[in-house]
């Protein structure tokens, strides 16, 4: 019986892991974030630990960068975070490390309930995150600024963000809105495991703002896997494909673009309107969404 049972061990492990990852992804990726105030002491924090890359960027944008004491293992921007200590991320926060840094504010995802409870027990003020849309980024900045005692600077940064987005929106006003497929992931060198943006989330909102009509805008999901058949049926005019590395060699980029030649009948492919965008900012729903909006608008032109 030993072998019979264990030959399924692998399968069971996969499913359990799968379920866990689904929860995690649902909790963290491609969503805008809105900040929700946590509990704790309300004096001005000076040693902030941020487990949320977009919150880190917001802190720097509102001039509170020098107060950031540590960041998550995914933080890469702004360059000032480079020398800062790393305290894990969504899945693997290093509680010991966080405690040893003696922070007076920890910013964590709302879904990190165990971590938040541990920190509260240790008497450390926490600020927890929740998801939202593109519009929630600016309001999240204002909330965070109020919490750390710099409401005026936060207002300035949030207003700049809103102004930047409004400029992009104005620049595409009156232009034709191409039907656009927004690809957020696939297997390199093939069209397998195609993951696309549905009609929710900050990426969908950015596409809409930059003048593209999401071909999957009617699907009330942030991201989903679709079959090639669906793409053939949707006939997008433009394919926007996001790559989260900062850059790629011209050769790699060309090779990845050429993969779409498998679907020669799609208007975007036929008319050479498959656009690959590279950049770490594409996944971070923070102040740099203005850059993403501009890049989207350029790619749709």
């Amino acid at each position: 019986m030993g072998h019979e049972a264990s030959c399924w061990g692998l399968g069971a492990g996969y499913w359990a892991l799968g379920a866990r990852i689904v929860t995690l992804i649902a909790a963290m990726t491609v969503a805008g974030h809105a900040l929700a105030p946590g509990t704790g002491a309300q004096q001005q924090p000076t040693r902030i630990v941020s487990l949320v890359p977009s919150a880190t960027e917001m802190l720097f944008a509102m001039g509170a960068g020098p107060r950031v004491a540590a960041v998550s293992s995914y933080d890469r921007f702004p360059p000032e975070v480079e020398p800062l200590p790393r305290v894990g991320a969504l899945v693997d926060p290093d509680v010991e490390r966080i405690l040893s840094l003696r922070p007076d504010l920890v910013i964590a995802y709302a879904s990190q309930t165990d971590l938040l409870a541990q920190l509260r027990r240790a008497g450390i003020p926490v600020y927890s995150y929740r998801h939202g849309s593109l519009a929630d980024i600016a309001s999240g900045m204002r909330g965070l600024g109020t919490r750390i005692g710099v409401p005026a600077e936060a207002e300035r940064a949030a207003a700049a963000l809103e102004r930047g987005l409004a400029e992009v929106r104005a620049s595409v006003a009156g232009r034709p809105r191409p039907r656009t497929l927004l690809v957020i992931g696939r297997e390199p060198q093939s069209l397998r495991a195609l993951s696309v943006s549905g009609g929710f989330g900050f990426l969908h909102d950015l596409l809409d703002l930059a003048g593209g009509d999401n071909v999957f805008g009617d699907v009330k999901r942030e991201s989903m896997m679709v079959a090639t058949e669906t793409i053939l049926a949707k006939q997008p005019d433009v394919i926007l494909e996001l790559h989260y590395s900062d850059s790629a060699s011209r050769e790699t980029e060309a090779r990845e673009r050429d993969v779409w030649a498998l679907l020669p009948g799609v208007p975007a492919v036929r008319n050479g309107r498959v656009r690959l965008l590279y950049g770490g900012e594409l996944v971070v729903p923070g102040p740099r969404v203005v850059l993403t909006a501009r890049a989207f608008a350029r790619a749709l032109r």
């Binding site: 689904v22 992804i25 397998r192 495991a193």
Partner: peptide, 15 residues
């Protein structure tokens, strides 16, 4: 990272 983890999970489910 999360995007890759999602793809590995998708691969394990068969396609």
């Amino acid at each position: 990272d999360s995007a890759e983890a999602l793809r590995t999970m998708r691969w394990l489910m068969g396609d």
